[in-house]
C-alpha cells in the first residue's frame, strides 16, 4: 500500500491511498490522517481510487481518522471510492458518515 500526501493551497490535505487497506495497512492510514490533522485544520480528503480492497480494519482506520478530524473541527471525506469500497461502506451503513465525492474540489466546495 502507498500513501501520498498533497497539501492544497486552501488548506485541504489530500491523501492518495492505493493498494489494500486492511489489517496490515490500517495503522499507517490512521497515522497519516492524524498527521494531516496535526499539521492543518483537519480537513482531509482521502482519494480511494487506487484502493483495490477495503476490509473492516481499514474501515476502522478511516472512522478513527474521522473522529480525530472532527475533534479538530475538520472532517474526513472520501474521493472516488472503488466498487468494492462502496460495497463495504454500503453494507456497514458508514456511507452516510464517511461521504464520497467525485473529486477533492467537490468534497470541499466552499473552501
Amino acid at each position: 500500500m502507498d500513501i501520498s500526501v498533497t497539501t492544497h493551497s486552501n488548506g485541504i490535505t489530500e491523501l492518495g491511498v492505493s493498494g489494500r487497506l486492511n489489517m496490515v495497512t490500517a495503522a499507517r492510514v490512521r497515522d497519516a490522517i492524524q498527521t494531516a490533522v496535526d499539521d492543518n485544520r483537519g480537513r482531509v480528503a482521502v482519494d480511494l481510487s487506487g484502493v483495490v480492497f477495503l476490509d473492516s480494519s481499514g474501515l476502522g482506520a478511516l472512522i478513527a481518522g474521522l473522529k480525530t478530524a472532527r475533534e479538530a473541527g475538520g472532517d474526513v471525506r472520501l474521493v472516488r471510492p472503488t466498487e468494492q469500497v462502496e460495497l463495504v461502506l454500503d453494507l456497514t451503513n458508514m456511507g452516510s458518515v464517511l461521504k464520497s465525492f467525485d473529486s477533492v474540489e467537490s468534497a470541499y466546495p466552499h473552501e
Partner: peptide, 20 residues
C-alpha cells in the same frame, strides 16, 4: 452491525461478512 453514528472503530467484521 454497530450504528453508523456511534463511530465505533471495530466490531463490524463478522456483521459485514454475514451481510455479504
Amino acid at each position: 452491525m454497530p450504528a453508523a453514528d456511534e463511530l465505533a472503530e471495530s466490531g463490524r467484521g463478522i456483521a459485514l461478512m454475514k451481510a455479504l
